[in-house]
Design a protein around this nucleic acid. Sequence first.
DNA 1: TTGTAGGCGTTATCAG
DNA 2: CTGATAACGCCTACAA
Lengths: 333, 333
Amino acid sequence: MATIYEVSKLAGVSLATVSRVINKNSRVSDKTRQKVEDAMTELGYRPNSIAQSLASSRSNSIGILVSELHGPFFGQMMAGIEAELRAAGKHVIITTGHSEEDKEKEGIEFLISRNCDAIILHVEAVSDDYLIDLCKGKIPVYFMSRLVAGLNEQCISLNNELGGYLATQAVIEQGHTNIAYISGPQFKADSKDRLTGHMRALAANNIAFNKGLYFEGDFKETGGSEGLKHFIKNKQSFSALVCANDEMASGSITYAREQGFSLPKELSIIGFDNIIFAQHTYPKLTTIDNPVNLMGHMAAKLVLKNVYKQKDIVIEHYFEPKIIMRDSVSPIK
Amino acid sequence: MATIYEVSKLAGVSLATVSRVINKNSRVSDKTRQKVEDAMTELGYRPNSIAQSLASSRSNSIGILVSELHGPFFGQMMAGIEAELRAAGKHVIITTGHSEEDKEKEGIEFLISRNCDAIILHVEAVSDDYLIDLCKGKIPVYFMSRLVAGLNEQCISLNNELGGYLATQAVIEQGHTNIAYISGPQFKADSKDRLTGHMRALAANNIAFNKGLYFEGDFKETGGSEGLKHFIKNKQSFSALVCANDEMASGSITYAREQGFSLPKELSIIGFDNIIFAQHTYPKLTTIDNPVNLMGHMAAKLVLKNVYKQKDIVIEHYFEPKIIMRDSVSPIK
DNA sequence: TTGTAGGCGTTATCAG
DNA sequence: CTGATAACGCCTACAA
């Protein structure tokens, strides 16, 4: 692979001049610029971004840490971030944390060690203290879907509590009072907040929280089926089921039908996130819209504005969920 | 951020010695190792992987190019690759090509310029010639879901033609002869192969290919609904619909129900890929299993074996799809 | 086992 | 506008 040195020799100029035409900044006479460019194409020269990065301590790449690479939620999030950044000529380096403290930390250190200009984190297992410490470092850090106390300016988050409230409220408005709830893993802030919202809606309507109608799921399809199975086994009676995300709602819809429920007549089900597939369950899933793709774009804009000093960017840190009415919730008879 | 130099000073040893304990290879006496490690923790030292990479021209990171970051197909693929590599202590750098030639090339160059030890590509728009050229470079290149002539050893692929055949054959075996087909974008090799398989099944059963029952979709949910709408508008008669992937199958199931079809009685639908969500459509989607997660693992193993010289790894280059019988296909009345 | 010194490919600061 | 030259942080023969 040709280096800047060979280019300079072929073009008959110095290293510095070649570097200048690469970086298009300081003035170079058109004549020499042309010579250099010719030499570059002739040699098929490509700048080595590793070397650039080492020398300049800038990399034009942004590190991203997500919990998982699969799943509709993270897919939309990554896609949003990447699209915005790519359009600005930046690259993205993605790694995973698997919701485990060690792996999250390791992932973060990898990104830092790669000289990312900034990192965008969706972390779930690591403590606030760790994050606050992290922010004292040199590299700018931003957070998706996590509100770290005192670091609001660096967070893009959804009002999950409100979302949880809206979901349960929607079901209550249809006359349901026996409402089962399948939450996400409770070590995750999102899950906790959604559950809090659920409780608030219950309380606001004078419905007592029934522990027998609560199940902690895993945010996956299986969580939905297992939760429902659990309720049925324990002979609970309920006419509505609110799930803390759409995957679990899908799983429970499938399982409910297998058990002979007529949906939504005998059981109303509501989800959370509004993943694309929510339009393709049967009945079509009523759910809470989580604009995670948009939030990804916003996180990217945040780094564009703060790190790359792009002007005229308006940042919205806090997103409000809204309900999407479809067919999986019906009035109680 | 502390450097190796400060560590060496604090530990009272040379740069080389510090480098040795970082790389755990050449022998260092326990005593000095301890001194160095103490110094490292005291300073909170983290190796700068950029500098490591520049000096050693090795990066312990593998570049991955996928078309999109979202969607169940790529999600599973990335997850498979990452899991395998992560377990081996390697990191993954993911970027996207968006199925556009320019972006694919740009993505590849980014990965190369980042000194990846190897790159794994899922490219769709770039030509074989370009890829063959690419392989002449210094950095090892591997391909997912694409067979490049002469480069079989570097490819992990699925027999898409067979999959296409199996899908249509399954529907024929249930007595269907008027079979509509919604393909993927025909510039993609996968789509083309699946269609070829469809044609072979038709031919093998003496069913003429009817152009009116063919629609080129986009591999997304909308492709399924649009295709079905197209057939209906043109007053085609058909009792079965085979879709080149599950997203389109889901879209067509939803649309079919909206149009009042009773499924699967009045219309049998089959998909391709067996994404997780295929279990949650109604009726549950009969489809062709595409072990893309496994294939991701295999691609990772390929680099573990060839690039990192790990022994005892058995590579399987060629995967066979198989049919997954569920409920969306029924015998013709 | 440990240290010295040159080099990886660029950038950036000075002079000129 | 252009050219030397010293960093950037680390690896790796080669010596000791």
